[in-house]
Amino acid sequence: MERSYEKYFRQNRLPHLWCPGCGNGIAMKAIVQAIEKKGLSQDNTVIVSGIGCSSRASGYMDFDTLHTAHGRAIPFATGIKLANPDLNVVVITGDGDCTAIGGNHFIHGCRRNIDLTVVLFNNNIYGMTGGQASPMTPLGKKATTAPYGSVDRPFDACHLAEAAGATYVARSTAFHEKHLVDMIADGFDNKGFSFIEALVQCPTAYGRKNKMGSPANMMMWMRDNAVMKAAWDKLPEEKKTGEKFPIGCFYKAEAMDYDTAYDQVIERAGGAAK
């Protein structure tokens, strides 16, 4: 039986060009399932992406889509949202696109608390360009530009988003598909900057370089190392070792979003011509 989420894909563009076993496909499905769950219309939703493996997703999704400049998805999305605040704007970005090339745009998007839903596909590496280390490559993990292991301490994008002022911050993985759908759907509910980090496997660049095995093995690694936030909070410090990491909703806050703030500016300036 044809699945209901298939209508959100551009059928003539599938199969997608991601490598066999790439987790981006799972994360893209999670986004459309979250859109379906929240009943967002295809005519009223805009998908904006930057550059990178992850950002190819916009080409496969049957909405109004924008494939923009490297790291600049959030500025484009900000423009769209301010021009027409009724639109639901979803940004798809990758770990390099969001935290390196677009690092400033990311923190300032968070700071403004503009009503976007940003989904970061974190594959821990620059996959498309040949496996260079990204700012989210974990310490000591190998990449083509870090043959002896990465020396640079990685960003925790969730901490970064929270510190910069985002009002919804969550993380999930490609293994926890249904959890990921819920996290993204909750992000749609938040009026303000919502940030969801989706950990995805990159078997071709990151997995091969770090001897993590098949795509299925990489997903089993996520299963074995991801800890739900409620359990993580109860975990004694000495057990938070190795590669264990928390998933779930980390932060939620109430703050005025940028559209409302801007409307107030318009009001103070004498109101817009109707």
Partner: peptide
């Protein structure tokens, strides 16, 4: 079980998780 052959890339995830 329905398989869309044109989409399968043979990554083996389904085989491993079955």
């Amino acid at each position: 079980i329905t398989i869309k052959m044109g989409r399968c890339k043979g990554c083996g995830i389904c085989v491993a998780f079955c």
